[in-house]
């Protein structure tokens, strides 16, 4: 329950609004700056004092990106690896989450919990350095299917932890009723449990998808030009001899604006799901 506003003085209210407005502005400014830079002409980008409003917007930076076949492929790769790995993580993760939700004790539960926590807690490089060696040895470096399963694996802990409480929340009686009606275990899962857990699965898919969309270390080390994703593409601007911030800002905007919008639109669900998953993850 939120505290009632009754006891607040008008001055207090103004202060409250002022603090929150300033904080919100600071939090949002980098996003605003990225987007506004992306629709500026090169010359406006470097103008001092900085041009905050009142420049002539240009879509040149975006059209330049979308005319580049490389960029089209980058976007396609990002979408493929994000969607593919999310589906795999949800399939594998929902089964494990169901098991963890329903069986308090089973052979391998403790080792599984330990593994998931370590996978979540270990710095990515620890895994990526030997993986690079292993994958190079078997010729799987820079292959899209490999990246998809790797993405799915690193996001498994998160997927499992977010979904477990959703499965726990499904009343056991419903499953039992289905069993009385003669359904098999798999049918129960498919026709009763899964549909009820679907909102949770969808929310999980959202988070896992976002994590996959943002993933950087895996594709930059283990990927290739053919599998280049958006974060890798964007990071290329740091070392490229480019004197132009426009396309960079446009590519960055394309990466972050969908996420920002998603956060705004799906806020309620995000808050609920994340606070559940984040507690475990």
């Amino acid at each position: 329950m939120a505290r009632r506003a009754g006891g607040r003085s008008p001055l207090g209210s103004i202060g409250l609004y002022a603090v929150l407005t300033v904080t919100s502005a600071v939090m949002l400014f980098p996003i605003f700056w990225t987007v506004s830079t992306s629709i500026k002409d090169r010359v406006d980008t470097f103008r001092l004092p900085p041009v905050i409003v009142g420049f002539t917007p240009t879509w040149k930076n975006y059209s330049q990106l979308f005319e580049d076949p490389t960029f089209i492929r980058v976007m396609a790769n990002t979408i493929i690896v994000t969607a593919g790995s999310t589906i795999v993580a949800l399939l594998i993760g929902s089964l494990a989450a169901y098991a963890l939700a329903r069986a308090p004790r089973f052979r391998g539960r403790r080792p599984l919990e330990v593994s998931l926590i370590l996978l979540r807690a270990m710095p990515g490089v620890v895994l990526v350095v030997p993986l690079y060696d292993v994958l190079a040895g078997v010729g799987l470096l820079g292959k899209m299917p490999m990246l998809i399963v790797l993405y799915a694996m690193v996001n498994l802990p998160f997927a499992i932890w977010i979904m477990t409480p959703y499965f726990q929340g499904i009343p056991m009686e419903l499953e039992e009723a289905a069993v009385i009606d003669g359904a098999s275990g798999a049918q129960v899962f498919r026709t009763v449990v899964f549909p009820l857990a679907l909102p949770g699965v969808v929310a999980t898919g959202l988070f896992v998808g976002l994590l996959a969309w943002n993933e950087f270390l895996l594709p930059v080390v283990l990927g290739s030009e053919a599998t280049k994703t958006l974060p890798v593409f964007i990071s290329g601007f740091v070392s490229a001899r480019t004197l132009d911030w426009g396309p960079l800002a446009a590519a960055s905007s394309l990466a972050i604006v969908p996420i920002a919008l998603l956060t705004v639109v799906m806020q309620g669900r995000l808050v609920r799901g994340l606070s559940q998953g984040a507690v475990k993850g």
């Binding site: 939090m27 969309w213 740091v238 956060t263």
Partner: peptide, 30 residues
């Protein structure tokens, strides 16, 4: 606190959380 526009502020403050670190890092660099 119970107040008008709370949702707007909350949303604004939550937005940066899930943004691509590489992309925002580059803009901060700028």
């Amino acid at each position: 606190q119970q107040m008008r526009g709370r949702g707007v502020f909350r949303t604004a403050i939550l937005v940066p959380m899930l943004l691509t670190p590489v992309a925002v890092g580059l803009m901060w660099r700028f």
